[in-house]
Design a protein around this nucleic acid. Structure first.
Lengths: 169, 169
DNA sequence: CCCACATTTCATTTTTTCTTGAAATCTATG
DNA sequence: CATAGATTTCAAGAAAAAATGAAATGTGGG
């Protein structure tokens, strides 16, 4: 009942079906690399937008807060996934999505995976130093396990540059 | 001051330096694929343990709750990362880590990445259906973006089986 | 086929992460 | 160079995720 009595009072531009699909898609993918929903929303909206959007517009269309929009845009700019462009006759910054999707993957690999692997290698070195203090009974088994760990990290570290190369065309 | 006045009252076996290294390592890596701290702790402890551990022992040594231990072990068993083994003369189950670390990566790819990509492809199809209803002005630009999305998903879907093969030796 | 102990389940609490919005800061332009 | 408007910051609140532990359920040994 009474679907639109208040029409025109606060008629925010509703998101189109197409925008919703894109937004949901990026919410899902970016969540995978640890980014919050609001960031996925912003990128998804910008991705399908044929023209640059001001922060105002983003806030209104996604119905998110000023803070979330500002922080989300900053994060996306830092990732290189969004750029600010000049819009003649408008004081506000306007934002566009960088369409190079591989950026998310490469940033994730470089900022998350690789540092963890490096720290992992340091841990392995420390573990190997501890090894001689173990009882002989346990030492052999533990040594083998640490060796496995090292082997796997090695494999990972060799794979990553290759994957990155593949991602960049 | 007074380091051990209560010694022997509740002397839990402290974690060794080696165990701590392993545990921290797995907390970090498993967090990356969305697993909670307690799961990383459990797997890390089992990974360096030269013999099977009962749930009791895990609870006591990690100082986690019954619920977290039970749920964490269940999850790890479902992933295939931990196995229950029979321990003669003991009613309790004992658990060992499966040392095949690639399992975490392959499970992640199969359960998280691939399904999302499949759903992504469905979304793209839906978006392409919507496309003709767009104003001609916007249509071309949007079409190109969706095409990019498809291209990237394609690339991902082709890469994943290859990565998996690489992981399995 | 009991029953003591082991494990699972799940409502509640705790912790962590995300969002909000008002205040502070910055900036283009008149 | 003052100021209105744009953006950032951040303390506080809300939401989501994880941990707890008591009650329910399962199970092996007698």
């Amino acid at each position: 009942m009474s679907q639109s009595v208040v029409t025109a009072i606060d008629e925010k531009e509703k998101l189109s079906d197409l925008e919703v699909e894109a937004i949901e898609m990026f919410i899902n993918f970016l969540k995978l690399i640890g980014l919050p929903k609001s960031v996925g929303e912003i990128y998804g909206l910008l991705f399908v937008s044929p023209r640059p959007l001001a922060m105002d517009t983003i806030i209104e269309r996604l119905d998110i807060s000023l803070g979330a929009a500002s922080q989300g845009l900053k994060l996306l700019r830092n990732l290189g996934a969004v750029k600010a462009v000049y819009s003649p006759g408008d004081r506000r910054d306007h934002y566009i999505a960088d369409l190079e999707l591989s950026k998310f993957a490469t940033v994730f690999i470089k900022e998350e995976l690789m540092p963890r692997m490096d720290r992992g290698m340091e841990r392995i070195k420390r573990m190997e130093e501890i090894l001689p203090t173990l009882s002989p009974a346990d030492r052999k088994a533990t040594e083998a396990r640490i060796e496995r760990l090292r082997h796997w990290l090695d494999k990972g570290q060799k794979m990553l540059p290759w994957i990155m190369k593949f991602l960049l065309r």
